[in-house]
Design a protein around this nucleic acid. Sequence first.
DNA 1: GAGTGGTCTAGACCACGGA
DNA 2: CCGTGGTCTAGACCACTCA
Lengths: 252, 252
Amino acid sequence: MTSEVVFLDDGLRDVKGREVQYVKIKEAIVEQIDSGMLTPRQKLPAERKFAELFNTTRVTLREALSSLEAEGKIYREDRRGWFISPEPLLYDPMRKLSFHEMATLQQRTPSTEVLSATNMLATKQACLLLELPPFTDVYCLERVRYLEGRPIAYTKKVIKSEFFPQLLSCDLLPSLTEIYNKKFGVVYQKTRYKISSTSLTGYVAQMLRATSGTPAMFVERINYDTLGRLVDCDIEYWRHDAICIESIAELV
Amino acid sequence: MTSEVVFLDDGLRDVKGREVQYVKIKEAIVEQIDSGMLTPRQKLPAERKFAELFNTTRVTLREALSSLEAEGKIYREDRRGWFISPEPLLYDPMRKLSFHEMATLQQRTPSTEVLSATNMLATKQACLLLELPPFTDVYCLERVRYLEGRPIAYTKKVIKSEFFPQLLSCDLLPSLTEIYNKKFGVVYQKTRYKISSTSLTGYVAQMLRATSGTPAMFVERINYDTLGRLVDCDIEYWRHDAICIESIAELV
DNA sequence: GAGTGGTCTAGACCACGGA
DNA sequence: CCGTGGTCTAGACCACTCA
């Protein structure tokens, strides 16, 4: 997995040393994963059968599963079941790589679905991020990123329209970075980003086939081009087990 | 809260449009928080009473609370109850600020507890991070970081001993950065970091007064000094609601 | 010592996914 | 249409926290 940090975790015990059940279940599953019996993207048994296997109830089993989900070892698809998490994608916020370049470099198979590409008035949030006055026209591009067919990120890009006339008449599927560069001569140079941990809800959860409450990594970026102009911003929700932020920086 | 991203979340409904109960409970609590009725660090009512208030069972109430915890809106202290989350600390991995400087700049009141400061043989993990051969001597410093008295991060620093003779005879409480600088002329210049999302378990959870399974932000850093020498590494577990990573970077 | 949170049981109904 | 996961009920016992 991501990083081999091992602390002495002797499980949860009460004073008398009896082990907590759901921790035992967790250990059993982790052992199966580590031993390679369970491979990435594989589906776990149905909850009822699984609970019976461990001689417990669904509630307790789900306690164990949720806990493993929180650790990023397994993930859930809404009403489809529980699956073993693949290795996370390494994401370097300091590099200009597009999602597809990033994934390909890591021998992964990326794909993208465009949910919507529209011309609209900036929302309050977009105005704040892009430093725009109210009622300014912007482009808004909503996408879902897939890795090996699994939806792992919902992304929304809000673009200052002034630098990109007729952007929406372009074919947006290949790579936006490329269109920026080739059609408009715009290249990113600087970015301001914010990363925090939340959970998926509502529409975003649905798009990622996730249950409301699934842990997520939230990334917000404000991008500047080589002329120092604020160009666009990104708002991204990543399934938390699917991403690991990694970077090298000169300190200031 | 961290960032005002609002999606149309009409709650979970089934086809007939009935709302799911725990979502209603969440909304009620969020409303109380947003309206300022509930303030940061305030304790929520006891689960049994709270459940009764919403005319439901503890299990369902806890579903709602766990979900809010995942969103970073509330947090839990093991066997003590549920509390409203304060604003997260902004953490810039690219700046040389110590935890205390960082917190103070943000008008917070930091404190630190040293769990252990020892001289030991590098573990496998430490050898990997510090690029050391087996059986090398290192310093290991375990600390808990507090904000307004609340434990929010467990940190472990493993230090190459060669650059810091007799480090442990120093008073480690003020600021390690300062000791590095004043006593040994070592200043950080470059860092390699990795950030991912997991959960707290075992000893780390205990130290943070957290229940096993509490969502957490995992940070791993490898630090180099102005001479390009690998100096030490950090392994940190932050309560996920207590931290927001924020930085500005020139892209490469 | 009372009350609280952590854990667990043994059921139930429903809507959705997939065949 | 069956089986599944999502949600929910109404209890229970225990160890721990805190007054």
